[in-house]
C-alpha cells in the first residue's frame, strides 16, 4: 500500500482538496435538490419550496400508467440482462480460452454499441426494424426494445467475466479435469463459484443500463412505454410534475440497491 507521499507542496494539497470538494458538491447538490422536490406541495418548480407534503406519493403509487411503464422496464431489463449474461459469458470464455484469428476484434465488436454515439445505435436499429417490418413483419414492441438493450449490455457482462477469468489460475480447471470431472462438473463446481460475484456485478450493471436507457429506446419502442419514456413524456406537462418528482425520488433511492449489493459482495470476498 502506498503511503501518502510528500512530493506535493502544501498549497497543492490544499488546492486539490478544494477542487475535490467542489466536484463532489457539483455531483451531489442536484440529487439532493430533486429529492426535496418530491415533497413539494405546490405544482410550481420555484425554489425555495414553501410547503412540504407526502400526498403525491399516494397519487403516483395509484397511477396505472406509471405501473405499466415500470412493469415494462422491469421486463425489458430482466430479459436484456439474461441474454447479456449468457452471450457475454460465452464470448468471455471463448476469448479467454482460445487463440483464434480475429480474437481482438471480438471485444471491439462487443463494445461498439456503447462506443458509438447513442443516436447512431438508435438510428441503426430503427432503420433495421423499419426494414424488417417491410420484409418479414417485424414491429416496434417490447421485443425490439429488448433486442436493442441486450446488444449494448453484452459488453458489460463480457468485461466483468473476462476480468475475473484472467485473475483465476488456469491450473484450477486442469486440476478438476485431472481429478476426473467432466466438462459440466468443472463448470458447475469450479468455474461457476469463481465467477459468481463477477456474474452478479455484470448482471446488475446490465440491468441498470437497460432500466435507465432512453436514447436508444426512443428509436426502438414505437408506442411502448418504459419508465424513462414516461418521465420523458411527462416532465414537460406542468400538472404531471409532482408525480415526475416522486418517480425521480424513487429512482434515485432504487439506484442505491445495486451499489449496496455490490458493496456487500466485496465484503463477503474479504471475509472468505
Amino acid at each position: 500500500m502506498r503511503t501518502p507521499s510528500n512530493v506535493e507542496p502544501r498549497a497543492v494539497r490544499i488546492g486539490m482538496r478544494i477542487g475535490t470538494g467542489v466536484v463532489l458538491a457539483f455531483l451531489y447538490v442536484p440529487l439532493f435538490v430533486i429529492v426535496l422536490y418530491a415533497f413539494n406541495a405546490a405544482q410550481s418548480q420555484s425554489w425555495p419550496i414553501e410547503e412540504f407534503t407526502t400526498k403525491w406519493f399516494g397519487i403516483a403509487w395509484r397511477n396505472g400508467q406509471i405501473r405499466d411503464a415500470l412493469g415494462n422496464s422491469v421486463k425489458a431489463a430482466l430479459s436484456a440482462m439474461s441474454i447479456a449474461l449468457v452471450l457475454g459469458s460465452l464470448a468471455a470464455f471463448a476469448v479467454h480460452r482460445f487463440r483464434f484469428f480475429g480474437r481482438e476484434t471480438v471485444s471491439f465488436l462487443l463494445v461498439l454499441p456503447l462506443a458509438l454515439p447513442g443516436i447512431v445505435t438508435g438510428m441503426a436499429l430503427n432503420a433495421a426494424i423499419n426494414f424488417g417490418g417491410q420484409i418479414f413483419g417485424l414491429s416496434f414492441s417490447l421485443f425490439t426494445i429488448i433486442l436493442g438493450h441486450a446488444t449494448f449490455c453484452i459488453v458489460v457482462v463480457f468485461n466483468n467475466v473476462i476480468a475475473r477469468l484472467r485473475r483465476m489460475s488456469g491450473s484450477l480447471v486442469e486440476a478438476s479435469q485431472d481429478l476426473g470431472a467432466d466438462g459440466w462438473q468443472t463448470f458447475k463446481y469450479v468455474l461457476l463459484p469463481h465467477l459468481r460475484t463477477a456474474l452478479v456485478a455484470g448482471g446488475l450493471l446490465a440491468f441498470a443500463l437497460s432500466f435507465d436507457e432512453i436514447i436508444v429506446t426512443n428509436f426502438t419502442s414505437g408506442t411502448e412505454i418504459t419508465l424513462p419514456k414516461w418521465i420523458f413524456n411527462n416532465l414537460r406537462l406542468p400538472n404531471q410534475r409532482p408525480q415526475v418528482n416522486v418517480v425521480a425520488f424513487a429512482v434515485i433511492l432504487a439506484s442505491f440497491i445495486p451499489v449496496y449489493i455490490a458493496q456487500r459482495l466485496t465484503e463477503d470476498r474479504r471475509d472468505g
Partner: peptide, 21 residues
C-alpha cells in the same frame, strides 16, 4: 464510490434535476 454512485442513478433523473435547478 462517491464518483461512481451518480452513474447508477438514472440519466434522465439527473438531467431533470438540472432542468428544475
Amino acid at each position: 464510490l462517491a464518483v461512481v454512485l451518480p452513474l447508477w442513478s438514472s440519466y434522465l433523473v439527473r438531467l431533470y434535476s438540472w432542468r428544475v435547478i
